[in-house]
Amino acid sequence: MSAGLHDRAPVWRRLLRDPRAVAGMVLIGLALLGALLAPLLPLPGPEAPDFLATLAPPGGAHPLGTDDLGRDTLSRILAGARVSLLVGLASVAAALVIGGTLGLLAGFLGGWVDTLVMRVMDVLLAFPGILLALGVTAALGASLGNTVIAIAAVNLPVLARVARGQALALRGLDYVKAQEALGFGSMTILWRAVLPNALSPILVQASVLLASSIITESYLSFLGLGVQPPTPSWGNMLRDAIGFLDQAPWLAWFPGLAIFLTVLGFNLLGDGVRDRLDPRD
């Protein structure tokens, strides 16, 4: 009885019982809070130079130091959080809507729809994710919007395959066949019966992809194919720090730590969501 009651508890309550998920939510919450409150904090603008304080060490008016142009590192870290979180969430959301829809249609309808959709996804999966992202940004140009498109293209086939697998597993169940016998159309059945029951595994996979999306954004920005200066992102901050590792190693420490903690937060939360939504749990 206790196990059944545990299973029926709301998802958020189950997550709050998981130390990993709580730790992940705290780390993600800190990143979100910093990104949202950055304009309200008494800090210099992230793009404002101070040539009298170039390469200043952490402390005093600049808690995390300054870069070679005297720009405040803390201000730039917080501005970079907005970029990384925006790109991560937007790219996963786009892949979730497009890939999830295509995967559900392919799995439920079968036939030529399944063949066409999955062959396209196989082509995308044939490329290592980072190479696909590099190819898309190189073809479209380096910008914030194109970075979102590139990372969405990487995530698209992963979510499509998960959604297709769920649709294949559900379409043969009795309650789906009952709706077919009652004369409901395929789209109605897909919307009313298949999607609600397929949604949990798809969302779990999406939560896991958030971490890899932030890493990919940082990688693209590091190579100069992501967000372009003077807009700060953690990736281009790491790239700018390379020439000053001997004089000012903190320029690499802090954006690297921001990437690590944010990705760790999404991984911990993703693990917690996966375990708590697992029907076998």
Score class of each variant (00 low, 15 high):
residue 66 T to F: 01
residue 103 G to K: 01
residue 61 A to H: 07
residue 76 R to P: 01
residue 62 H to G: 06
residue 86 L to M: 14
residue 98 I to W: 14
residue 98 I to E: 11
residue 75 S to M: 09
residue 88 G to T: 06
residue 94 A to C: 13
residue 86 L to R: 09
residue 99 G to W: 02
residue 58 P to M: 09
residue 46 P to C: 11
residue 79 A to D: 11
residue 71 R to W: 09
residue 62 H to L: 07
residue 69 L to R: 14
residue 71 R to H: 04
residue 107 G to T: 02
residue 44 P to E: 09
residue 46 P to R: 11
residue 70 G to V: 01
residue 56 A to I: 00
residue 103 G to F: 10
residue 102 L to W: 01
residue 45 G to D: 15
residue 91 S to R: 04
residue 61 A to W: 03
residue 76 R to Y: 07
residue 65 G to A: 03
residue 61 A to N: 13
residue 84 S to N: 07
residue 96 L to F: 15
residue 73 T to V: 15
residue 57 P to N: 11
residue 88 G to P: 08
residue 97 V to C: 03
residue 45 G to W: 04
residue 46 P to K: 09
residue 76 R to D: 09
residue 49 P to E: 12
residue 59 G to C: 11
residue 81 A to C: 09
residue 64 L to R: 04
residue 102 L to C: 14
residue 64 L to I: 11
residue 58 P to T: 07
residue 101 T to L: 15
residue 93 A to Q: 07
residue 46 P to A: 08
residue 105 L to M: 14
residue 70 G to Y: 05
residue 50 D to Y: 09
residue 107 G to R: 08
residue 101 T to Y: 09
residue 85 L to R: 06
residue 59 G to P: 10
residue 45 G to Q: 14
residue 63 P to G: 04
residue 80 G to M: 01
residue 59 G to D: 05
residue 67 D to V: 06
residue 104 L to S: 07
residue 83 V to N: 06
residue 58 P to I: 07
residue 56 A to H: 14
residue 87 V to F: 06
residue 63 P to S: 01
residue 47 E to Q: 14
